[in-house]
């Protein structure tokens, strides 16, 4: 994850340098129309599994305004705003019980989404929004808060478990469940020597809720 942080910073730095250079160039050639900076179409977090596709955006849902029929989506540092109409296809979104006519209010800020859009005169128009589906975990493989509480109260030695926080390091640093160690999912391969030697011992994974 450290590597990811560094790349985020250098990305931001590159953007800044890019925009300064752009300004300088614009001043030199005032007649030439300013080129809009190219925005990414896939957020880094989605890029672990997905490639950019024309007419598609992948990022984190930010907000919806039904009054103007607009969706705001974050793609890392960039923000995209798309209009939509009543024909917008909505997938994997649970509409709020008290507001079934405005289902996008059921999307939480930050939720990973894929949007299909068309573009005309620089204006993006969304035709489909699909939220990332929940990965199914078989019931017998799940543990509940009470189970984790019992384990934590015993401690890893007595409880004979390893509690693993699969979130990125910055989230782990902000606060973690007591006795947990951090093995971010993207670093799984690199850190597999941290796993217990005994393959039959109990391992409990958690993150910020399965999304």
């Amino acid at each position: 994850m450290l590597r990811k942080c560094i790349s985020t910073f250098s990305f931001a730095a590159a953007l800044m340098i890019g925009s300064f250079a752009g300004q300088a160039a614009a001043q030199e050639k005032a007649a030439a129309p300013a080129q809009p900076p190219t925005k990414p179409s896939v957020a880094k977090v989605c890029g672990n599994c997905h490639q950019p596709q024309p007419g598609n955006l992948r990022g984190n849902f930010d907000s919806v305004a039904y009054k103007t029929k607009s969706i705001q989506v974050k793609i890392d540092e960039a923000t995209e705003i798309l209009r939509f109409d009543d024909n917008l296809k909505i997938m994997n979104v649970q509409a709020p019980a008290d507001n079934p006519d405005q289902p996008l209010y059921g999307l939480k800020k930050g939720k990973e989404v894929r949007i299909e859009f068309t573009e005309k005169d620089g204006k993006k128009f969304a035709t489909l929004i699909s939220a990332k589906t929940t990965i199914k975990v078989a019931p017998e493989k799940q543990v509940k808060t009470e189970d984790v509480e019992k384990l934590v109260a015993q401690g890893p030695k007595k409880g004979k478990y390893m509690l693993i926080d699969a979130r990125p390091l910055p989230r782990f640093q902000e606060g973690s469940i007591p006795t947990a160690i951090n093995i971010p999912f993207p670093a799984f391969e690199k850190m597999k020597d941290k796993l217990p030697a005994d393959k039959a011992s109990l391992i409990v994974y958690y993150c910020a809720g399965v999304t």
Binding site: K141, Q142, K144, L195, K199
Partner: peptide
Amino acid sequence: LGYTNVKVYVDGT
């Protein structure tokens, strides 16, 4: 990797 007792705390933080 061969671990036989792996659980997921689905509700998480």
